[in-house]
């Protein structure tokens, strides 16, 4: 049980990654592929944030930063590791911007071929 709890986050990240990868490879619809890509991205974020978690620690904002306790010694074990949070915070915003680009390309494809199904697009590409 102890082992299960301590590794559960990593198993779920692998499972999410598999779901995303499967959707990207096997799904015929382009929007489904993009959803798969987003699931893949969030799997990576789950992994990073999980490595930053710490037992018995609080959120990474220094308590009483400017109060009378400001002189108190800050122990690293009191606060969650902030570094993965920083990396993932920007990754989330960038992922929504790239999602916008992906959806724009999908709209462009739909404008040209009138469908979002991969096999139908391939048929139209082969015989113009």
């Amino acid at each position: 049980m102890e082992y299960l709890i301590s590794k559960f986050n990593y198993w779920v990240y692998v499972a999410l990654m598999m779901i995303g990868l499967y959707a990207m490879i096997s799904k015929n619809n382009l929007v489904k592929k993009v959803i798969g890509m987003s699931i893949f991205q969030t799997a990576i974020i789950v992994f990073y944030v999980s490595t930053g978690a710490k037992k018995g620690a609080t959120i990474p904002i220094i308590a009483h930063g400017h109060g009378e306790a400001a002189e108190a010694v800050i122990e690293a074990s009191q606060y969650v590791n902030p570094l993965p949070h920083v990396l993932m915070l920007t990754a989330i915003v960038v992922s929504v911007a790239t999602l916008g680009v992906a959806l724009a390309i999908i709209l462009g494809i739909h404008r040209k071929y009138g469908t979002l199904e991969e096999d139908e697009i391939m048929e139209k590409v082969r015989q113009p």
Binding site: S50, A53, K54, S77
Partner: peptide, 22 residues
């Protein structure tokens, strides 16, 4: 393990950030 305070990710540069930011 998940939430292990001694994991390598929480050892090196992140301790500097936490203790020195103020």
């Amino acid at each position: 393990g998940w939430a292990d305070p001694n994991s390598p990710a929480s050892q090196h540069v992140s301790t500097y950030y936490i203790t020195k930011t103020i």
